[in-house]
Nucleic acid binder design. Structure first.
Lengths: 221, 221
DNA sequence: GGATGGCTTATGAATCGCTTAAGGGCTGGG
DNA sequence: CCCAGCCCTTAAGCGATTCATAAGCCATCC
């Protein structure tokens, strides 16, 4: 899952990026409204984490502009003021949820999960696909009943495939949700990652469709 | 993607159908509520574009009736009046989005895209032409209900033909969209590709017009 | 019947994906 | 603060598939 973090404060931004990456999210950190809007318009993000405290009321503008462009990527707003006006402003402008600073990373993580659950229509924190289960809360994966130890990247790849089980996931789409917008061309990082994941699961589980991408069968055994 | 257009006005209906077909959607135009409901019950549509200004409050009835039958196909409502009551009526009855007449085709297109994105998973970006379906999201192709395995080039060729179904596509235009602007002259790569594609589908499906190019009939069987 | 354009098949080259190995960076322990 | 271990990216070799080219045949138009 690919998160766009819009935050001008260097310290908080770096901390959030690290925390989110530790939770297996791919984070693109943008420091100002203009570059944020450009990135948002690409529609490659799954969730936008937006600081309303950007200088010059930039935050709200980013949000309004996003919604006016009919981009309905979920937006989680961070604000320093817990006033009714602030909340109304944010939600009216099209935010899906908000957080009052300061907050704990656990709370942020919970809201991100809740938000992606809501917009995805999932009832629980767990994805089941055949003999595979993946827990977004605890980051645990089991295969054929056995727990499997996955690294951060492997987990993110498996999640992307499981969320689209039975459907082909395009190569660019995977690279985007793993590496963010600015992935370099010409590397075979994805292939190496697929290989590592196959080794930990089984080699039949992940199917390749030459020239297009990868796919997880709806019922892998 | 298959759109059900419910519109009683002949002029507007024809214009919308033409505009949507130009955007590679398959459009079934129905002029009254009764036939519309029958078509909706078939559940073959991916999206319903419903005029609320149908005579006799027909529009709202179609919508309520649809939702009562637990058919949750996305509905985009068109209404002439921009009053709060009108919006509430439509959204309360189960519409997913609404448009105030008159509107620009660009706006309609944007809302259709947004709607199909929101209800993703099914037929998000699908082109239907007769017995052929091509899914741009998952890169899957079916012919007469059977899945067909295509290579990247074959897929690109079929896509170009399907986006212009019923129209003649010039040779240069195909070569451009397959090989880019700087394709070398004197090769017959296109013919070889057409041959490969015909072999995987059927030899009657793709028609050649000597000296000009190729064409896919609007209703290939 | 000649000429042009399209069809079909074979073949070598290019591309794509798989696999293994190596090196750099980050983390946690001593 | 340094070292060890893990993770991740890069690189390179290999095998399989795909693709463009070429060459001969067939259909259509004049």
């Amino acid at each position: 899952m690919h998160i766009l973090l819009v935050e001008d404060d260097a310290q908080l931004g770096a901390a959030l990026q690290r925390a989110l990456e530790r939770l297996s999210y791919t984070v693109s950190w943008l420091r100002d409204g203009r570059t944020a809007l450009n990135a948002i318009r690409d529609r490659t993000a799954d969730l936008i984490l937006l600081d309303l405290g950007l200088p010059g009321r930039d935050g709200i503008e980013v949000l309004t502009e996003t919604r006016r462009a009919h981009i309905d990527t979920p937006v989680l707003v961070m604000t320093a003021r817990d006033t009714l006006a602030a909340r109304v402003d944010g939600l009216d402008a099209g935010a899906d949820d908000y957080l009052i600073k300061p907050f704990h990373v656990e709370e942020l993580a919970a809201r991100i999960r809740s938000l992606s659950r809501r917009t995805r229509g999932l009832a629980v924190n767990r994805i089941d696909v055949g003999a595979l289960t993946l827990d977004l809360g605890t980051s645990e994966v089991t295969f054929r009943g056995e727990p499997v130890e996955l690294t951060r990247r492997e987990f993110a790849l498996l999640q992307a495939l499981m969320e689209n089980a039975g459907r082909l996931v395009r190569r660019e789409s995977l690279e985007n949700s793993l590496y963010g917008i600015d992935h370099v061309v010409g590397n075979n990082a994805l292939e190496v990652l697929v290989h590592a994941l196959r080794r930990k699961l089984s080699f039949e589980t992940i199917r390749n469709v030459r020239g297009f991408g990868y796919m997880l069968p709806r019922d892998p055994k």
